[in-house]
Simulated scan of single mutants.
Amino acid sequence: MQRIILIYGLIAGAIVSGMLVISQPMLSQGIINYDNAMIVGYTSMVIALSVVFFGIKTFRDQEGKGKISFGTAFKIGILITLIASLMYAISWEIYYNTMGTDFMEQYTSYHIKKLQEAGATVEKIEATRKEMATFSEQYRNPVIRFGMTLLEIFPVGLLITLICAALLRRKEILPQNA
């Protein structure tokens, strides 16, 4: 079980971390904006975490002889998710502390510019500027930043794990090859 969890967790982590490293320079160069980056980011998370399905199915077919309980499937999926989530958060920390040191300034500027273009009042813009300054200060703390990064990906993996565990406990779903 541990071998399957490790292999599929590392595959999922490599995919999501690779997409992070590819998309962030595109963001800072203006190829994509922060709204598009969110779509790209969550799409890459779903794609990467689809590996959970294959990890659970591999265990079911190889070690469970075509059968798996919801609990065992959930355990495998959540551990794959945990490995991928940790790799994603570590990748962000490395990126943030090397090439993305101006991330919060760019993020704040983007939101302020969007408000201005939408015709927001001066009061609304100043309130947002103050909120973003408070958020930027909190984001400087690596423990808070790491936790926030984990909270981006882990719920996605939890949902995928629940769906996959529910589906694959039924041996009729993609039955084991004879």
Rank of each mutant, 00 (worst) to 15 (best):
T128M: 14
I15C: 10
A84F: 05
F74D: 00
R169Y: 10
P175V: 09
Y88K: 05
N141K: 15
G157H: 04
P142L: 14
G13C: 08
A120L: 07
V143G: 09
P175C: 07
V16M: 06
K113M: 13
R129C: 01
T134K: 07
R60T: 04
M19Q: 02
I173G: 00
T72K: 13
M45Q: 14
K67I: 05
S109W: 02
S109R: 09
K65H: 15
Q116S: 07
R170I: 11
T128P: 04
T128F: 11
L150Q: 12
A89F: 05
L158E: 10
N33T: 09
A37H: 12
I4T: 07
E93F: 08
A89M: 05
R129H: 12
I39D: 07
R60H: 10
I160K: 00
L82C: 01
M26D: 09
L167W: 09
E117L: 09
L10A: 09
V156G: 00
Y139T: 06
T101R: 13
I11H: 10
K124C: 04
M38T: 12
D35T: 15
K124P: 01
W92P: 02
I22E: 11
Y88I: 07
K114P: 02
K75G: 06
A120T: 12
F53R: 00
Y96A: 13
K65I: 12
R60S: 06
T108D: 01
V46N: 01
H111T: 12
S50K: 01
K57Y: 03
N141T: 13
T161Y: 00
V51E: 12
N36H: 10
Q176V: 14
V143A: 15
L10D: 03
Y34C: 03
L159C: 05
L158Q: 09
A178M: 09
V51C: 12
R170C: 11
Q24P: 03
R60C: 06
A73M: 08
A133T: 03
Q29H: 11
M45C: 13
I76W: 08
T108R: 07
E152D: 07
W92Q: 05
S44I: 08
F70A: 06
I94Q: 02
I7M: 11
T81H: 00
Y96W: 10
I76A: 07
N97E: 00
Q138D: 02
E126V: 01
I47H: 03
I160H: 00
A133S: 13
A120K: 08
M38A: 14
S23M: 14
M148F: 11
R169N: 14
E126L: 11
R170W: 10
I5L: 10
S85M: 11
A37N: 14
Y110M: 05
W92M: 08
N141Q: 12
G9W: 09
K171N: 13
R140G: 01
M45F: 15
E152P: 01
K57D: 00
I32S: 08
G66Y: 12
I160M: 06
F103E: 06
D61Q: 11
L79A: 08
T72M: 13
T101H: 08
V40D: 00
V51H: 07
